[in-house]
Design a protein around this nucleic acid. Structure first.
Lengths: 346, 346
DNA sequence: ACCTTTGCTGACAACGTTGTCCAGTCCGTA
DNA sequence: TACGGACTGGACAACGTTGTCAGCAAAGGT
C-alpha cells in the first residue's frame, strides 16, 4: 500500500497514522507522562517544559485519542439516546433538550432511531452499552426490557422517557396521558358534543392505551355512551386514519367531534376534515407548529417534549452522580390549549 | 465506598466492574483468544468449546468493551454529525437520513448542535475527532475550517452539507440555492408582481447570500428595479421579521409579494400576513409540514433535507472505502411547489 | 555538612481487546 | 508405527492513554 507522506510535518504524519503522546514526548525531549500532564492541564510542569511540549503538539497536529483515555479511565462521558424517529418533530425537540443537558455535564450524545422495531431498539441500546456509554435515555418501543438488566447491574444508568420500561423497574419520565386527554375530551363535552370519536395509535403502546383510557373515563364520567364504531386504534399511517375517519363520517349518525391520539393522527385527520363538507370539531394530542395558523386554529392537548427530555436527562445525571434510591417515576402534566377547532365546527 | 454485591452472578459482578474476556475465559476454562473468537464469530472453535464459552458469557453477563476493541483496531465505526439545531425539522430530517445511511454501513452516530456558534461548532467537531470518529458530516456555521486540516490529513473523512467549507477544500453537498430562488421569484413575476420583497438570514451565511443573489438576478433579468427597502437580511428571530415586514407593508407604495429566505422567516411572515388586511403574495424557501393546509396553501421552493443528508453520507462512506480524487461538490436542485399563496393574494 | 522538603520528571504497569504465531491433538494414510 | 496435514487452542505483544511511584535536583533548615 502506497502511503504518500504528503506533507512535511513530521514522521508521524503518514496518512492514517496519527502522532501519539510518545511521538510528542520524543520530539519535545520529555517523558510520556509529562506530555499527558500538559495535555490534561495537570499541575507540576514548568512553564518552560510546557512550552516545549505545546510546540511539539502543534507541530505534529497531535490530538489526544479519547478511545485510549476512555479505556484507561472507565468513564466515557457520553450518553446514548434511543428514540422512535429522530425525524419526528416531537422527538427532535426532545433530542435537542437531551443534548443540551448532556452538554452541560460535558457529555457527548449518541443517537439512534428504533423505528418502532423492538429488535432494533435492543440492538441500538446494546451497541451503546458496548461503547460503554455512561447512561441511556430511552423512548421504548419494545415490551420487555429485561435485556438491560445486566447492563444496569453493571452500572449503566437508564432513564425511560415518554413511555415506561416494561418488565423491569426503572426511572421514567412521562406525561400524564390519561389526565391530559381528560381535559381535552371534557372540553369537547363542554362545547356540547356527545358523539365524540377517538382515533389513536396501536393499543399495545403504553401512551396510546393510556390516552384511550382517559377518553373512556371522561365519557363514562359524563354519562355518555361510547359506540365502539367511534373508537379506532392502530397504525398512524395517513391511509388508515383517512379510511377510519371517513367511515365514521359516512355513518348515518356521524360523530360531531374527534379526539386524535397523537400529532400524526391529527395531521392526517386535518386533511380529511378540511376536505369534508360535514362540520366536525377536533382536539388533538400533541401541539404542532402552525396549529394556530390553520382555520380554524387547532385546539390541542400539549405535551412539552423539551421538558420531558430535560427532566429525564437531569434525572440520568443525578443517578450518575451517585443518587441512589428506588426507581422514580416522574409525571408531567399536559396542557390544554384552546384555539377554536374544539368549538367551531369545521 | 460500599459496593454491595447485590446479585450472585459471580465475582466479577461488583457494581461498576464488568466481567472481561479474561473472566469469561477463566470460567469457561479456555484461553483468552478463544473467547475472543467466539465473541466475534471467528472460525476455528469446536461446537463444544463454543458452547462452554457461550454459557460463561451468559452467566457473567459479559459484553464486549468496544472502547478496547476500537483502540486495538483503529476503526471506531462511528460518524459525527454537527449541525445547527437538532430541534429544527429541516435538520432533524437530515439527521435521520444520515443515521439511516450510517446504520447501513454499521456505524453509530454522534450528534451535536452548534447553535450557530462557530466556537461551539469547532469544539464539537474536535471532540468527535478526539473520539476518532471515522468521518464527519458537518453543516458549518463557522467561516474558517482550517482547524480541520490536521484531522483530515490524519484520515478523518469530512463532508459538508447545506453550506460549503470555508478556507479549506472539502467535499460538499449543497442545494442550488440561487437557482431555486430564481424559480420562486420568477413564479411571482409570472403572476404579475413587480414589487417583490426579500427577507433572509444573516448575509454572511452562504445559503442566505446565495438566495439573495438568486433574487437579485431574477429581478434584474426581468428588468425590475429593486428598492433596497424591500430587502432585509439578518436574524430570523420572529420579532425582527415582524418588524421588517410591517415596515415594508406600511410603506406608501407597499410590496405586493414576499419571498422569504427560509422556513423560519416563512413562519414568522405568515403570522404577520394573516393578521394583515393588505393582500400580499408569498413564496417561501423550504417546504414545511401542513403548508398545503393553510389558506391559501403556501407556495414554496423545496429542498430535500433527507436527500441532502443521504447524499452527503453516501459520499462520506465512499471516501472511507477508499475513493480518492479531488474534493467533490454536489449540487441538488430545488423544486418549486406551487400551492396558491404565490397567486392569490392574502 | 547533612538531612529534609519540595517540585518536577519519567519508568512502568494497567485498562480490555485483537493479531501473530507457535504448540499440541487428532485424523487418515503409507 | 510413523508421518504429514488440518484443525484447535493459548501465550504474548500491542493499541494510546493515565495512575503509581520512585528518582533527582534545588532549596531550606539545623
Amino acid at each position: 500500500m502506497a502511503e504518500p507522506a504528503h506533507n512535511s510535518r513530521g514522521a508521524a504524519q503518514r496518512y492514517g497514522a496519527r502522532p501519539t503522546m510518545k511521538d510528542v514526548a520524543a520530539r519535545a525531549g520529555v517523558g510520556l507522562k509529562t506530555v499527558s500532564r500538559v495535555v490534561n492541564g495537570e499541575p507540576g510542569v514548568t512553564p518552560d517544559t510546557m512550552q516545549r511540549v505545546q510546540s511539539a503538539i502543534d507541530a505534529l497536529g497531535f490530538r489526544r485519542n479519547d478511545s485510549a483515555r476512555i479505556l484507561r479511565k472507565g468513564r466515557t462521558s457520553s450518553v446514548g439516546l434511543v428514540l422512535e424517529d429522530l425525524g419526528d418533530p416531537f422527538y427532535s425537540s426532545l433530542s435537542r433538550a437531551v443534548e443540551e443537558v448532556a452538554r452541560g455535564y460535558g457529555s457527548l450524545l449518541f443517537t439512534g432511531s428504533s423505528d418502532e422495531d423492538p429488535e432494533r431498539e435492543q440492538e441500538l441500546t446494546l451497541a451503546f452499552c458496548a461503547r460503554r456509554v455512561d447512561g441511556l435515555v430511552i423512548v421504548p418501543t419494545s415490551f420487555d426490557h429485561r435485556y438491560l438488566e445486566p447492563e444496569i447491574a453493571a452500572g449503566i444508568a437508564s432513564v425511560f422517557v415518554d413511555r415506561p420500561a416494561e418488565r423491569i423497574d426503572a426511572d421514567a419520565v412521562l406525561t400524564d396521558n390519561a389526565g391530559a386527554v381528560r381535559e381535552g375530551v371534557a372540553h369537547l363535552i363542554g362545547q356540547g358534543h356527545r358523539r365524540i370519536a377517538f382515533i389513536g395509535d396501536q393499543p399495545r403502546i403504553h401512551t396510546a392505551s393510556e390516552r384511550l383510557r382517559g377518553y373512556r373515563e371522561t365519557m363514562a364520567a359524563a354519562g355518555l355512551p361510547v359506540d365502539e364504531a367511534w373508537v379506532s386504534m392502530g397504525s398512524t399511517a395517513p391511509e388508515r386514519v383517512h379510511a377510519e375517519l371517513s367511515r365514521m363520517l359516512d355513518d348515518p349518525q356521524p360523530v360531531t367531534a374527534l379526539f386524535s391520539g397523537n400529532n400524526r393522527v391529527t395531521v392526517a385527520a386535518l386533511r380529511v376534515l378540511t376536505a369534508s363538507s360535514r362540520p366536525v370539531a377536533l382536539v388533538g394530542f400533541d401541539d404542532f407548529e402552525l396549529a394556530d395558523l390553520l382555520s380554524p386554529a387547532v385546539t390541542v392537548v400539549a405535551q412539552d417534549p423539551a421538558r420531558l427530555g430535560r427532566t429525564a436527562t437531569e434525572l440520568l445525571f443525578n443517578r450518575l452522580e451517585g443518587e441512589t434510591g428506588p426507581p422514580r417515576r416522574v409525571e408531567l402534566r399536559g396542557r390544554l390549549i384552546v384555539r377554536g377547532s374544539g368549538e367551531i365546527a369545521f
